[in-house]
Every structure is written in C-alpha cells, then in structure tokens.
Design a binder for these strands. Sequence first.
RNA 1: GCUCCGGUCGUCUAGCGGUUUAGGACGUCGCCCUUUCACGGCGAAGAUCGCGGGUUCGAAUCCCGUCCGGAGUACCA
Length: 516
Amino acid sequence: MPVRVRFAPSPTGLLHVGALRTALYNFLMANRDGGQNILRIEDTDRTRYNPESEAEFISTLKWIGIEFHEGPHVGGPKAPYRQSERKEAGIYEPYWRQLLAVGKAYRAFETPQELDEMRQFQQINKMPTGYFGGEWRDASPEKVAEAEAAGKPSVIRLKIPRGEKIVIDDVVRGRLEWDSDTVDDPVLIKADGMPTYHFAAMVDDHLMEITHVLRGEEWVSSAPKHKVLFDAFGWTPPVWVHCPVIVGNDGKKLSKRHGATRVLDYGAMGILREPLKNFVALIGWAPGNDQEVMTQEELIHAFSIDRLQASPGRFDLDKLRWMNGVAIRALSPEDLWDTVSAYLADPWTKKYWSTPDPEPIPGAPDHAVVLAELETLQKAMTDQPDLARKALLLEQERVLTLAEFGAACSFFFGEEVKFEEKAVQKWFGEAHAGKMFSDFQAELSGRSEVSVEDCERMVKGWAELNGFEKLGPVVHPTRVALTGKTVGPGLFELMSALGPHEMSRRLSAAKELLRA
RNA sequence: GCUCCGGUCGUCUAGCGGUUUAGGACGUCGCCCUUUCACGGCGAAGAUCGCGGGUUCGAAUCCCGUCCGGAGUACCA
C-alpha cells in the first residue's frame, strides 16, 4: 500500500524550524516510497486565524523544495483541504451525530466559567485537571433534551471509557500506555459548531486515508484521545510518529537569539535551501552511516522513520553555517553567479536587512551595514560584471553565507578604499612602502590588463631587486593599499582582477595616506 | 499537582549484550600548506555512556529505583 502522509499546520503564525522539519520528514517519506504528500490546513480556530499564514507556508515550503501532491493550492481527490471548508461542506456532521447516537459522545452544557472554577478546584485539591464527566456524561436523555430546549449552549465531548488501558504504538517511542481514568473527555465540537483538532484531524486522517501521521511531540499526550476516537468509529488508526522538539543551543525554546525562528529568514541570511534541508533533517535523525552532507535525493533515499531520535534536538547555527559554506564552495562559477543574483534580487533579502536587528547578537554585523554592502554588490554585478564575477570567485571559499559576500567583496567596488586602522598601523609604517608603490605604478603604466603571473613576477621581482628575502613586508603593505584590509584573497589574483588602472589609482591614494 | 516522554564528548549523532582503548561530524586547540585570511591535509583535547542498584562470565546496550530535563494538562492547534 502506498504511503499517504500529511503536513497539517494551523494557519496562525509563521513557518518555524520545527514545523519545517515535520514537513520535511513527511515529504521525504512520501517521496521515498512513491507515496503522496498532502497539505491540509487546520483552520478550525477562527480567533487565531492569520490570513497570511497559509501563503507563507506554501511559498516557504516551495522555496525549500517541498511540494505536495494534494492540498488547497493544487487540489486533489479529497478536496477541500481546508477544515473550515470541510466543515461548511458538512463533512463532519454525520460523524459526530453517529457518535452521539451510539452513546460514545455526549452533550455537555457547562459554561466556560463553570469549567474554570472546576479546574481551580481540582488544582487546589491536587487532583488531575480536566473534564471527567461532570453532570452530563451520564445525564438522562430527558435532562439533556430539557437543557437543549432551554437553548443552553453546549459542546460535544468524547466519552472516554473508564477503567481500561489505552495503548498506542508510536514508531519513535514504542508502546505507550495510559490508564483511561487519567484521560479526560475532550471536546469534539465547540459551542459554535466548529470541530476541534481532536475531531477534525482524526476524521480527516481517516477520510484522506492517511497511513502515517508525523507530528510534533506536543501531541503525544493527546494520542490516547485520538486512539479512543478511532476505536469509537471502528477505524484503523494510522501509524503515529511523534517527532521530538527542536530547542536552541542552550536547551531553551528556539528564539531569535539562536538564529531565526522564521524559516524565510534563513534564506534572507544567505542560507541555501539544500544545506538548510540537510541540516534540519539531521536534527533528530541520522542515516546510520557517517554521511552527513547529503543532496535531497540522498536524503529521500536514506530517510526512514525508524531511525528517528526520541530525545529533543538542539539547533546549532554554527553547524548550519558550516554546511552552508560547503554548499557554497561546491557551486560552479555559473551557479554561483545565478545563486548570488537571485539572492540579491529577492525582495525578502532586502526586507530582512533593512529591518534593524531587534536583538543584536554581539559581534554580528549591523543590518544597515550589510544592506549597504549587498546593494553595492548588486549594483556591481550589473555595472561591472567582469569584476564582480572575479570577486565572487575569489571570495567563494571564504564565506559561509551569501550575505557575507557583501562585506567580502566590498573592497573591489568602492570609489575609495576604506582603510582599516589596524591594517594601516601595522603595514604602512614600512619605510620602503612609498617607493614600492611608485615602482609598481611605473611598471603598470600603459597596460590595460595584467595576468596573475605578471603580478606575481612583478611583486617577487621587486622584492628580489630590493633585497627582501621574505615576501611579507612587500605583500602586506600592498594588500593594505589595494584593499584596506589584512585579510582576503591571494594578492596576485586580486591584483589581476583589479587591473592596472584601478591598481594605480589606489596606489596613489595610498601614497597620499603615507604622507599624511 | 497530575499524566506521559526523554538523558552517549559543549552540540548533532554511531552504537541494539562481547569485534569498543565508546566511532564520525560541527565547534575548540596545535601542526603542515601559504603573501594574509580562508580552503585543504594531518593531529590533539573532549563522553567512566545522568546517578545508584541489580541480571549476566561480560552492560552504554536488559531490569528496578533515583535525579535532572521536556511536553501536555483550553470550547488552541
């Protein structure tokens, strides 16, 4: 039987990392076994509904490469795929009527205030909290009819059997067992007629013929209720797979401090989708061999739910950055160019960097500075594509994110070199610097381009002629003159990329600084 | 409080009763390469497998207890 899985988010907020992983595991599983991946929108809570949420889920997932065979945006044989629409279509009603008719569910007429008081009482008396029957679970039909006739609002609750063991088999945790007396009667239908998650999701999972439910660990405590519901209908439950939570590197709930919670922001930070996927898949799952860097195809092939971890996983931004660097370095020159230009053209990139960091991480570059550098790079890629191409290639192995290309390449394009004070102090004190710069200028004059080899010959020749055994005192001042920095690509490559004219211009400026 | 779940280097993990002096990766540190940084190569430190008992000739691996951490405890999902 082919696998049918579903990713069923509630459209209340943004797509965060934990949800991404669940979506990814669903996707990997479906694609490995030639099954179907279904998107279902669980919008039964009208008070928390966020109209932008669904679009964000779909577009983010699409960006990362997760597609669905069925869903509200693509349709499918089990449409509609939004629970609010399914409710309107009357899909749920026959099912709760059936439960009511056979006495496996009942109407309860407590007001929210009454329930509140009940909970307080339970807490004070150190009793388990929850609705274990109240006065309605076993109320006579006459009493219920009377309350209904009086127009009292009511909910429909599931009648959890008492004095039994409820057992479910979870792929990740094995056999899970509850004493049914500790499980309270959940609301199936709210007073406004909307189904709750417990009801809608189970009915839909059955109707949509879902074979495996991969969901977050926050659902394990509701699992017995879901099992009872499947039993009440006489349906075979799907295989439940409860994935552990993802926490920050300090063990706390994931927040901005740990990188970002919103998946889209990782793209804006210059994280490529392949390493992001690769990294997220590896929190809580490992293929069992030593392979870590994997393509999507390899992930699909290697993925298996019985290798899922039961313990919570931490999100290690450093490792993500490393993986991202590996991916950037693996890009061909053409792909590198395309990837960077797409990144710079993405409106989300600009939006992200134009917003000041609400919680600045010490040592991290200022958003405004990054934005300016990225804009400079983007401009250069259209105005001076040859130079920009060389700059990108020279910095490729030095950056960990796409955003870092901005700072790394900036010295190639500026009208004026921005000198780092430390660099100037360290290398412009050398007495020979001025003469050396002039000599280079003389040698460069009249030429329109120089090869890397020419530059090497020129610099090494000058060193030999002037009695320098080590290249350092020659190379470093020149680097500072040309880039303003002490770090960067190989000097000869960088010189050749800049070209004779630009080099000469910068050497003149450096000589001015020397005199001052 | 109650219910359930989890616990191997700082982090992600391998391990499924003996081949384990517990392996790999990130991070850290050192060396090499080298004009710097990075890349790459080599190497080091780092986990008595939360703790305590048992079972066994033998346990990270099985059992019990204990501690710590997490999730749930809504007419939210």
